[in-house]
C-alpha cells in the first residue's frame, strides 16, 4: 500500500499556485521534498493534513482519503513543523500528559526514551529551550504514538550536525518496517541525499521532478569540457551549463552522452540548483 498518493493536486492563493502535483510514496520509503522558500513544500504538507482546502485533485494517506477520514488519518501521522508549535509554558512532562490524552496509541516509554536519547531536560519550560531542543521535543512527540507516516517540515533546521545525524539514523530505523514512511522537506539537501529513497523537486509550485534517488544519480552526471564540445551535444542531453574562460561545466543526461566522455557523479543539490535555475522539465 502506498503511504501517500497525491493526484492532480492544485491549490492557489494570492500570487502562489501549486500546479497539478502527482506524487506516490510506497510504504517503507523516505521522500525528500526539495524546494526553495515559497516553492510549495509547506503548502503540500498542509494540504496533506487537510489544514488547507485544495482546489482540485485527491490525496490518499495510507489508503484513506485525507479529508473524509481526517481524524483517523492523524492518529497514524506524526508531524513536525518548522516552528514546533507548543506553548512556551509547557515542559516535556506536561507535553507528555497532553499527548497521552490526545493519541490513542501514545507510548510514554518511547517518548521518555527519545527525550533521554536527545538529552532533553524534562522540567524546563518549552519557551526556555534552544531551537534545536524544541525541535527534538517535537520529533519525540511525533515518534511516540506509533505513527505510520511522518511529515517533517524543515524538521532538521536548528539541529546541530551531530543531532541531525542522530535524527537521520532514527528515520532510517523508523522506515525499516514497510508500514512506516516519511515525507521530509528540508533546505539541507545533503541530509535528504543521505536518507531519501525518493526525491521531489518543487519550484514555484511546479513539480520539476519526482524520481527514485538512485535513478536520479545514475541518470544524471557532470561533464567538464571545452565549450565547443558542449555545443556539439544534443540540446536534450544538457540540463544546464556553466561556461567560463576555463571551459564549460554541464549537468547532462548520461544516456545521451557519448561513452567516451568522462562523466562525474552529480549531487542532488547540484541537480536541484541546476533545474531550479533553468526551470527545466
Amino acid at each position: 500500500m502506498n503511504a501517500i498518493e497525491i493526484k492532480e493536486l492544485s491549490k492557489s492563493y494570492g500570487n502562489f499556485k501549486l500546479e497539478e502535483l502527482n506524487i506516490e510514496l510506497p510504504g517503507g520509503c523516505i521522500l525528500g521534498l526539495i524546494g526553495e522558500n515559497g516553492a510549495g513544500k509547506s503548502t503540500t504538507i498542509k494540504l496533506i493534513l487537510g489544514l488547507l482546502k485544495r482546489d482540485s485533485g485527491s490525496i490518499k494517506i495510507l489508503g484513506r482519503d485525507n479529508l473524509k477520514e481526517n481524524r483517523l488519518m492523524k492518529e497514524d501521522v506524526g508531524t513536525v513543523f518548522d516552528e514546533v508549535g507548543i506553548p512556551d509554558c509547557l515542559d516535556a512532562r506536561k507535553i507528555e500528559k497532553v499527548m497521552r490524552r490526545t493519541f490513542k496509541r501514545w507510548n510514554t516509554d518511547e517518548y521518555n526514551a527519545l527525550l533521554k536519547r536527545f538529552s532533553v531536560p524534562t522540567n524546563r519550560p518549552f519557551g526556555k529551550l534552544s531551537r534545536g531542543m524544541k525541535m527534538k521535543v517535537g520529533i519525540a512527540a511525533a515518534l511516540s504514538h506509533n505513527a505510520k507516516l511522518l511529515l517533517l517540515d524543515e524538521a532538521t533546521s536548528g539541529l546541530d550536525p551531530v543531532a541531525r545525524d542522530e535524527f537521520l539514523d532514527i528515520l532510517n530505523d523508523f522506515t525499516r518496517s514497510e508500514e512506516h514512511s516519511v515525507l521530509i522537506s528540508s533546505h539541507i539537501v545533503s541530509d535528504l541525499e543521505k536518507i531519501c529513497d525518493y526525491i521531489a523537486f518543487l519550484h514555484n509550485g511546479k513539480l520539476l521532478l519526482f524520481e527514485e534517488k538512485d535513478v536520479l544519480l545514475s541518470e544524471y552526471g557532470i561533464i567538464h569540457c571545452p565549450e565547443q564540445t558542449l555545443s556539439e551535444l544534443s540540446k536534450s542531453a544538457v540540463i544546464c551549463k556553466k561556461v567560463s574562460s576555463y571551459g564549460a561545466e554541464a549537468i547532462v543526461r548520461r544516456s545521451e552522452i557519448p561513452h567516451s566522455a568522462e562523466i562525474s557523479p552529480v549531487t542532488i543539490e547540484e541537480l536541484f540548483v541546476c533545474m531550479a535555475k533553468e526551470g527545466a522539465q
Binding site: 498542509k46 513543523f81 514546533v84 508549535g85
Partner: peptide, 18 residues
C-alpha cells in the same frame, strides 16, 4: 492569543481533533 503566538493553532491541526 497564546495559541496564535506559539503556533499551537497550526500544530493542533496535525492532531486528531476536530
Amino acid at each position: 492569543a497564546i495559541d496564535e503566538k506559539s503556533r499551537w493553532t497550526e500544530y493542533s491541526g496535525a492532531l486528531p481533533y476536530s
